[in-house]
Structures are given as structure tokens and as C-alpha cells.
Design a protein around this nucleic acid. Structure first.
Lengths: 340, 340
DNA sequence: ACGAACCGTGTAAAGGTTTACAGTGTTCGA
DNA sequence: TCGAACACTGTAAACCTTTACACGGTTCGT
């Protein structure tokens, strides 16, 4: 009763009294096989509990129906929702997801490429913002595997990209602050060498420029996007004694740092200071005051990225090699009119 | 210069002037091949850029060196760190991780089993707390694939388990509150049919019992572990007009809900109420007041679970089929002595 | 000096699919 | 009635490894 070995296509063929070719066709191109035969086959499949051996199939077909996800940090609150989107689309199309957490370690990036070179994965989704170390440096492998970058673009490599329009989103955010009456607006999280940060800063500058506001350079503070950097940045402002009425932060984590610092100094938020984030991570609504921010359509980003990759994989020309989605303004309690 | 097709073992063999068997041995059992030959082979490998085709290898070896991770929600803040632990151990041993996000949808659970039955994954890590739907119901597949449950045990199935000692952890937490002088301690997040919740509640009861404290049943409130359920629970206490001096919450998310509710009612925390969580998720330190909680050794849980699974996979007898790690008390600012 | 043990290598089978090609039988038009 | 077109089905090759087995050559103990 209990089958020791898994049933193979041959067992099914024997039971149905046909050749293995016919079984294969009955499964993969049902129209090409006579009704009666097909019934016999499906019957035999049910009786044997047969499932196609994916390894043999991949070997023959030269593709694995697997996608490798390369992410610097799977714990990033931005990551998981995108992953769910990726996964929704992937499993809809019969693909599986292989996860590679690199922690920004070049050797791990390289290591994970073995999945590509060994045919265990057909394509690549990049969260890292750069090509995996070991890919594309030598001219030998000018042939890059099919891949798409998500969330963070890869600079100077013409890699298809799906993400949010950071420039536009930051501009909308800054304009919201301006519309509330703020004129002295800080930007926390400057990092010119990180594309996302740079774009958001540009959006901020564009909004202030558009409103005819001169930017006090002391209100622009470096940061690496961590909560701690936000906290430190806020403290720095007090040291410099150049205070804004509102903080536009490069992301929610940074904004939480700013809020923590201001709370610690016993300011009454948002009455005395407005704070705005970007991303709308899940905890943004839990901090006090709950965070006004720009929401990234993460699920859709994941879906769009996977969709793009799969069309690339199918050898078709994609509609566009860059998909920019709009961030949505989420109004909560951390922004109000400036004091006075 | 650019190889159209990937090099196979045959190309390497030809270039090195040996048979493919020797190449295979030079790679997999280097000691079994003469030094001079081995050098010729490694040389040829380098020149051709050969990598073993994992599909052919898996087909032949009947294992894929892949592990399927079945999780209800990859966005769970508890999840990612465990995943990193799993991944650390897995890639150390040459295994890859396949991710299956089930959203507690039985059909998705079943669907993901195709990776097991098609030989694409050798083993299973279960975050779900139950067998995937479709496994183990019919007596036919009495042969379960190698698997281990992590974080949440599978009830009544004798599945190897790695997790935290929830009973002991909750007891330590409750004892901490008692040591601060609390006598009226609420338990938020009762859910008798969820093993984790049940154990934590038991630990709470044990601590209070041990201290000779009678438990007011009105201080035990149901909850599903979400932030919203914590908020609702706190509100319910006010309605019931049965207030504790401290809230022991089944997890951090619930605790954050309680804190949000108390903050909203303008209580001064922790002076008027103490709140304790369990898990130490990353945001626990960011809420105000920062959360005193029990830290789960998530990274180690992941490593231990993968280690256990891999020994199972190797056919060896594991040291123990259940690994219970200790949760660590993390002192922050949400707990103090009761008022008065 | 002879057999045993051993070392290094090659031959060939096996692992389970997909699919080009060939073959058989039926239908249909002229 | 005959050939062509057609609808199904089968044969066998190909995908790329690993490994049992066989084989030839050395070493070594007696």
C-alpha cells in the first residue's frame, strides 16, 4: 500500500497501458491526446499518486522555475510586503522563490550566484541596489542572467527596475508640510551616494524651490536610514541650534528616531514639531504621535517586479524596463501647522 | 570567448584529458584522485568556468539540498531573525532555502507541498504550528518528509521542535512584575487553543500561584496576539472596571496595543501602569515607554532548527527531538513599581 | 617469485523527464 | 479506389551527473 519509491512516469504509463511519451503529453499538452487515453492516464496518475520529478524535468527543460531573491536584510520592514507580492505573482505562474540573505556581505552575494550558474534558478530579483559581487566585473560574463532590481535601482547598469517614484513622493511629502504652513523644513537622512536618499532629497529641494523657500543648509542632515541615525540627527540640530518647525525624514525608521529624540526632550508633538516619514512601515501607526508618511505600494511593487522578470524570462519584450509607482500620502498625527 | 552553452563535465574531461568519472571524483572526493590529475582537472575547470549542473546532480543523487520553509506570514517581526538563523546554518552546510508564505491558507499549504513531492526540497521547516493541509491526514502518506517545527510546536504529532521555553519565560516575566511589588497583574492574550499562548498563560499562573497571589479571573483577557487585540483588551478592562497595576502581555505586539490604549487615555506610563511584553521584536525599544520584555534567541532558534533538520536528513539520530531555549529578561522602561 | 592488497582510472548504467521523428490507422476529397 | 491529410501514439535521444564495477599497474609480505 505504501509506495516505497515514488511513482515515476513509467509506472503511470504501465498502469495506463500507454507509452511514457503519451503520459507526458497527457499532462503537458492535454489537447494532443485522445480523450479516452487522457482519462486512462489521469486515472493512473491518481492511483499511483504520481508527481513529476521536478529535477528530471528541469534537467531536460534547462530551467528550474525558480527565482533567486537577493536581499541585504530580510528583516527590513520594507522587505516582507514586497516579498509577499513577489511570491503572489510567482506562485500564480508556477514559480518558486529561493531566498538569499546577503547582509551586504560580498562573499555571500557571490556565493548565492551558484544557484544561477548551476541552473537552480532562472532569474534574479535584486534588493541590494548593486550587482552581486562577482557578476559583471569580468567582461567574460557580459551575459547577465535575467534580473530585475526592486525598491532600489542599480546605478549605471541598465538593469530593469521596479520601485516607487522617490523624487515625486518626497516632493508630495514636502508640499504637504508646506501646505500646512511650514517654511523651515529639515531633511534628515542625506546620503548622496545612495540613490533612494538622493532622489528623495531632490524631491524635497524641488518642493521647497517651487514654493520659493530658501533652504538653510544647516537643516539638511546626513543619515543612513536607521532609527539611531534619526535620533542622532535630531540631537545634532539642537547642538547646532538651528531648528526647523518640521522634519522630513528619508524614511520611517529615521522619523521614528527623530520622534524618540523629541519625545525624550519632552517636546509636545506634533504641536511643537511636525515629523514626516516615508515608506509607511507597519509600525508607523503605532508610535506616538502616529506617523504621517508616504506609503509605498509594496505588494504591487513585488507583483510588478515578478511580472517584469517573468516576461523577460519568457524572452518577450517588456512594455517598459522601468516601472515607477506612486507613493500615497498617509495622513496621521505627526504633522500639524507650525507653532506660533 | 563567451561560451554559448554552459560548460559540462564532459568539456572539462576533454580539456583535462581524463574521463568524466575522474572529473567528478576530483570535485567530490579529491583524495581519491592522483595529485597530478587533480591539478589538470581544477585547471580545466577554471579555464572552462564549469559549474556542476545542480539539476543533473539532484536527479542522480535523489536530493536537492533545498529546504522548504513554510510560514504563515513572512512579515511577522518574529520571523525574519529566525529565518536569518536558519539561513546561516543552511548555507554553511550547502543548503538553499525555499520560501513558502502560506497566509494560513490551506490551499497554499498544500500547493507548496509540491516542492517536497517533486523532490525539489528535501525537508521542511514549519512555522505554522500545524501540519500542512494535505499531509498526514490520509494513512497512505504515513511517511512524513523530514521536518522540524520552529517557534510554534505541532500538537499531537510528535514533530521535532525548536523553540523557546514559553512556560518558563512567562513565569520569569511574571515573577519580575511580582518582584517589583505588583499583585494585581493582568494577562492579555489568552487563547487556549494556541499552544504558545496557553504555555505563556500557564507560566503566568504558575508565578502568581507560587507567590500566593489569587488570580482575579477578570484580569485574564482573550486576544489573538495582534496589536489591535491588545488595544481592545485594555479598553475592555476599563469597561469592566477591573484594573490591574501591571499588564503581562502574551507578546510584544499585544503589549504595544495596550500601551497605545493607555497613552491615548493620557495615563503616565510606567508610573500608573506597568506593561510587559514577550518576544523583544525590533520595535519594542522604540515605543514610549520602551518595552520591558522577554527576548527570544531567534537567531539561535533558527540555527538549532536547521541543525536538527539536517541531522534528521542525514539519517542520524538527533541528540534530542525537542530543543527549548531560554528567553532572556530585557529591562527597559515600561515596568516600575506599582503606584501608591 | 607470487598472490594479495591497493591505488588510480575508465566504462557504462541509472536517475526521470521532454520531444523530434517516425509510424499507424482513419477520414476525406477527387 | 487511391492518395493526402490528419489524429494519435510510440521509439529513442538528450539533458548532465554520480557511482558500481572492472581493469591495469604497483607495492608489499612471505
Amino acid at each position: 500500500m505504501l509506495q516505497q519509491k515514488l511513482a515515476t512516469i513509467e509506472d503511470v504509463a504501465a498502469m495506463a497501458g500507454v507509452s511514457i511519451a503519451t503520459v507526458s503529453r497527457a499532462i503537458n499538452e492535454p489537447t494532443k491526446v485522445a480523450d479516452a487515453t487522457r482519462r486512462k492516464v489521469t486515472d493512473a496518475i491518481a492511483r499511483t499518486g504520481y508527481t513529476t520529478n521536478a529535477m528530471a524535468r528541469s534537467l531536460r527543460m534547462r530551467r528550474s522555475n525558480m527565482i533567486l531573491i537577493l536581499a541585504p536584510d530580510v528583516g527590513d520592514p520594507n522587505f516582507s510586503n514586497i516579498l509577499v507580492g513577489l511570491e503572489t505573482e510567482a506562485s500564480k505562474r508556477g514559480y518558486g522563490l529561493l531566498i538569499g540573505n546577503t547582509q551586504n556581505d560580498p562573499s555571500r552575494e557571490t556565493d548565492y550566484l551558484r544557484f544561477i550558474s548551476s541552473n537552480q534558478a532562472d532569474g534574479l530579483i535584486l534588493f541590494t541596489g548593486h550587482l552581486p559581487f562577482g557578476l559583471g566585473q569580468s567582461p567574460a560574463d557580459a551575459r547577465l542572467p535575467p534580473m530585475v532590481a526592486v525598491n532600489e535601482p542599480v546605478l549605471g547598469e541598465d538593469i530593469p527596475f521596479v520601485g516607487v517614484d522617490n523624487f515625486e513622493g518626497a516632493r508630495v511629502a514636502a508640499e504637504h508640510l508646506i501646505s500646512q504652513g511650514h517654511r523651515r523644513i529639515a531633511f534628515v537622512g542625506r546620503a548622496p551616494n545612495r540613490e533612494i536618499n538622493r532622489l528623495r532629497e531632490d524631491g524635497y529641494r524641488a518642493a521647497l524651490g517651487g514654493a520659493g523657500i530658501n533652504i538653510d543648509p544647516r537643516l539638511i542632515i546626513d543619515g543612513d536610514g536607521t532609527t539611531e541615525s534619526g535620533r542622532a540627527a535630531a540631537e545634532l540640530m539642537f547642538v547646532r541650534d538651528a531648528l526647523p518647525t518640521a522634519f522630513l525624514c528619508v524614511n520611517d525608521a529615521t522619523a521614528m528616531g527623530v520622534i524618540i529624540a523629541l519625545n525624550a526632550r519632552r517636546y509636545d508633538l506634533p504641536r511643537q514639531f511636525s515629523v514626516m516619514g516615508f515608506d509607511d512601515i507597519s509600525f508607523a501607526s503605532f508610535i506616538t504621535p502616529s506617523l504621517t508618511t508616504m506609503k509605498q505600494p509594496r505588494h504591487r511593487m513585488g507583483e510588478a517586479a515578478m511580472e517584469l522578470l517573468l516576461t523577460l524570462l519568457a524572452g518577450e519584450k517588456p512594455g517598459s524596463r522601468e516601472v515607477l509607482l506612486r507613493a500615497e500620502l498617509i495622513l496621521r498625527n505627526s504633522v500639524t501647522r507650525p507653532p506660533g
